[in-house]
Design a binder for these strands. Structure first.
Length: 812
RNA sequence: GCCCGGGUGGCGAAAUGGCAGACGCAAGGGACUUAAAAUCCCUUGGGAGGCAACUCCCGUGCGGGUUCGACUCCCGCCCCGGGUACCA
């Protein structure tokens, strides 16, 4: 082949890609008829946040991986809906807008326009008709509607809660802006806490179902594990420690078996019983301690040294098991948000309690004797389960696990205990004291309380204002817009004021996939018919950084809407796969490191197809990889070779070896695509092409019958390129309307294989044998091989292991 | 600390418990060329031996174990990346 390369048109990626971008648009190739699709397949990728920097290589990696899967499904016969949109509200846009002094409402459309252009260049099979932006009032109208649905169902409520506060920015921070307790923008400033009245969603009511449903989902294991850990179910008991002054302290413990060793009790400093229980002579100390804790920054309370501090409050409680009086302390290591905000301290069998006992010289009683290990004294604290009770009256000698139930039942009989399950999961705080988000649709009336904005008045449009910088008050900027927030009460008509907080960005993204099919629907959040056809999502691909929050919130909203009768399914994403991260020089890409890779220049230089394939070839898709551009020329070379084969295609039928390789490749690529193993799929196609080229050199042209299926296999990876090849092979329509090639199992089977011969597990020879050879024949051939003879001559073969079509192992 | 990943040639990597290093990059050699680029062909884990076809030994972070056979499974560590933060 290629005697005179000059007489063939060169592969010009820019021309090819521009041509097909334009043609796809003109022909509506990527459009799917949502109402009449016979085999609907919803292929979802996590929508991007349209940053001012534009699309970066991590986005492209994510989208291309998802796009390849969608295109593959389409070739396999599905009607694939592949939408995209923009997650454009939120604190990052707002902070950036403040920095460059350009209103987010002006900034965002600009960024989106840039993203759209970049995304088009990547060649995604996107249905642009269904694009959405969370900042569009036509979208957030329904975000607000969802809030109201939850509010009306009692799943949204207000309570006092701490917010992160940066004393340097003088502003409220979102959790993701707090890095190890410090402000993201002021790495030397420890974040403090302020307490404000905020809106919450009662996600904890769904903890158990969110946990159980995980078992039904086809998700990456790592993601399911992350969700399970985040929900953090623990089983135990609530025990009652009564006090002589009245008021009993309820403590949660996962180790009721150790209650005989509880030598004091600790309340969270904020615990409501503290006031009532504190003895007069201790009040000053207690108040001072509580004040100190409240003013403490997050670094020292939650991140810093775990040094134990606390104060005795001058009161005692009764250990329900021993009947003894134990002192009551307050300490900041007990958190009000978890369990009952109170614990029993068992210093012999809990590390924190042990440290506390050391710090304040409190008594330590061992109540578990480890089963193995030094007899006594056992090194304390012993926190394991492999032991038997001691110093526990009638329970002495009982194994821990058994004692959990026995002790609980015994105390239940005295009404001093009950079995309890606790979750780490907290209710979802959705209030943001910021500007750039959807206003929470509530109106406060002195007479009627918190009143939902009537549906007919939605959306509550975010008012245009240049005065949106957060200030020292910690209150939302919208609270400065009196004209906006002063409204009549929708119920009684009296004077009232709007809620001035906006909602969390995670709420915007918790339902966007429900909206995509229904972007044209004006009078509902989502059309029931379209929803039934297209949802739940068939394939969702995204980053593991969203393994917990986004996916949990989306599941929760879906579950809640299901229970409220709005959705016919409980889980939004049937299949989820987490892709890996692309790093640069071993480190996460970030502006501060200055190692952000911008895709544009690579696409301009190599073409989108080469760049797409290169990103997929870098390493396993679900693991990510280190971006370096050294290898990209290899992909380009590969495409050039395919290009050459296409030009040389002719009508001859090719030999058996070539068609066997083709069918093996079809099988391999199909299987790999199914599991997102794009790197090995590409390698398989390269092998196939290498073989076809060798064959071509010996004979004349390259058989069209072998090239055409290969072009189809390549199409998901290099869509523009494949279209051009397909056309040059004489087809009028899109390659994406061609069927995925069927592989012929009989054709793919090898006729001759190389049988590996081992002696004592070491490879000593290889003999060519017909495929499917029987054991006896294989052993005969193996033992006849001179290379093998050297190792077996004069020895007795004690055992033969035969693995069909693979190896013979002779044990001597 | 805990929970997830991961550790294999010069580099990115591949391998249902069955030939370690497919595929690609880089490098070296050769062909073509006035020359270079591009293209094509060959070599390429380390070591030892041989004129040679080739042969042998070592080798998947470290130490043990299971097995006819371990990159793969089990136990105990080390290192790197990510997440999380006193969750009772």
């Amino acid at each position: 082949m290629s005697e005179s390369p000059t007489d063939r048109p060169a592969y010009d990626p820019q021309a090819v890609e521009a041509k097909w971008r334009q043609r796809w648009e003109a022909r509506g190739t990527n459009r799917v008829d949502l109402e009449r699709a016979a085999r609907p397949f919803y292929n979802l990728m996590m929508f991007p946040y349209p940053s001012a920097e534009g699309l970066h290589v991590g986005n492209v990696f994510a989208f291309v991986g998802s796009d390849i899967y969608g295109r593959y499904r389409r070739l396999a016969g599905a009607d694939v809906f592949e939408p995209i949109g923009f997650d454009a509200f939120g604190i990052h846009s707002e902070n950036y807008a403040l920095k460059v002094n350009l209103h987010p409402a002006a900034l965002i459309p600009r960024n989106i326009a840039r993203f759209r252009e970049q995304l088009r260049r990547v060649g995604l099979m996107v249905n642009w008709d269904h694009e959405l932006s969370t900042t569009d009032p036509a979208y957030y109208k329904w975000t607000q509607w969802i809030f109201l649905q939850l509010f009306k169902a009692g799943l949204a409520y207000r309570k006092q809660a701490p917010v992160n506060w940066c004393p340097e920015c003088k502003t409220v921070l979102a959790n993701e802006q707090v890095i190890d307790g410090y402000c993201e923008r002021h790495p030397d400033t420890a974040v403090t806490q302020r307490t404000l009245e905020q809106w919450f969603f009662a996600i904890t009511k769904y903890a158990q179902r969110l946990l159980e449903n995980l078992e039904t989902l086809d998700w990456s294991d790592s993601t399911r594990t992350a969700q399970r850990n985040w929900i953090g179910r623990s089983e135990g008991a609530e025990l009652v420690f009564t006090t002589p002054v009245g008021g009993s302290i309820r403590v949660f413990t996962t180790r009721p078996d150790t209650v005989f060793g509880a030598t004091w009790v600790v309340l969270a400093p904020e615990h409501p019983l503290v006031d009532q229980l504190t003895a007069a002579e201790c009040r000053a100390d207690v108040n001072a301690y509580r004040r100190r804790v409240q003013q403490m920054d997050i670094v020292s309370r939650k991140v810093g040294t775990k040094e134990k501090t606390g104060v005795f409050i001058g009161a005692y409680a009764r250990n329900p098991a021993t009947g003894e009086s134990v002192p009551i302390w307050i300490a900041d290591y007990v958190l009000m948000e978890y369990g009952t905000g109170a614990i029993m301290a068992v210093p012999g069998h809990d590390e924190r309690d042990y440290e506390f006992a050391q710090a304040f010289r409190l008594p330590i009683v061992q109540v578990v004797q480890p089963t193995d290990g030094p007899a006594s004294p056992a090194p304390l604290p012993y926190t394991g389960w492999d032991g038997r009770l001691i110093n526990s009256a009638r329970f002495d000698g009982m194994p821990c696990r058994e004692a959990v139930g026995a002790v609980t039942r015994w105390l239940e009989g005295k009404e001093l205990a009950r079995g309890e399950v606790q979750y780490r999961l907290h209710d979802w705080c959705i209030s943001r004291q910021r500007y750039w988000g959807p206003p929470i649709p509530i109106i406060y009336c002195d007479a009627c309380g918190a009143v939902p904005v009537p549906d007919r008045d939605l959306p509550v449009v975010l008012p245009a204002t240049d005065d949106y910088r957060p200030d020292e008050s910690g209150i939302s900027p919208l609270a400065r817009l009196e004209d906006w927030y002063r409204v009549p009460c929708p119920q009684c008509g009296g004077p009232a004021r709007r809620e001035t907080d906006v909602s969390d960005t995670f709420l915007d993204s918790a339902w966007y996939f429900l909206r995509y099919p229904s972007t044209a629907v004006g009078d509902r959040a989502f059309d029931p018919e379209l929803t039934r056809t297209w949802l739940p999502v068939n394939s969702y691909i995204g980053g593991n950084e969203h393994a917990v929050l986004h996916l949990m919130y989306a599941r929760f909203i879906t579950l809640a809407l299901h229970d409220l009768g709005h959705l016919p399914f409980e889980e939004p994403f049937t299949r989820f796969r987490a892709h890996g991260t692309i790093v640069k020089d071993g480190a996460k890409m970030s502006k501060s490191r200055g190692n952000v890779v911008v895709p544009d220049e690579h696409i301009a230089r190599w073409g989108a197809d080469t760049f797409r394939m290169y990103l997929m070839f870098l390493g396993p898709y679900q693991e990510g990889g280190d971006f370096r551009d050294e290898g990209i020329s290899g992909i380009r070379r590969f495409l050039e070779r395919v290009w050459g084969l296409v030009q040389d295609a002719d009508g001859n039928s090719g030999d058996e070896a070539a068609s066997r390789k083709l069918h093996q490749t079809i099988r391999k690529v199909g299987g790999d695509l199914e599991e997102l193993r794009y790197n090995t799929a590409i390698a398989a196609m390269m092998e196939c092409v290498n073989l076809l080229r060798k064959e071509g050199q010996e004979g004349q042209g390259v058989p069209r019958a072998l090239i055409e299926p290969l072009v189809v296999l390549l199409a998901p990876f290099a869509p523009h390129f494949a279209e051009e090849c397909w056309e040059r092979l004489g087809h009028a329509g899109s390659v994406f309307d061609a069927p995925w090639p069927a592989f012929d199992a009989a054709l793919a089977r090898d006729v001759e294989i190389e049988l590996v011969v081992q002696v004592n597990g070491k490879v000593r020879g290889r003999v060519p044998v017909p495929a499917g050879i029987a054991e006896a024949d294989a052993v005969a051939q193996a033992t006849a091989d001179p290379a093998v003879r050297k190792f077996i001559d004069g020895k007795e073969i004690r055992k033969v292991i035969f693995v069909k079509d693979r190896l013979v192992n002779l044990v001597v």
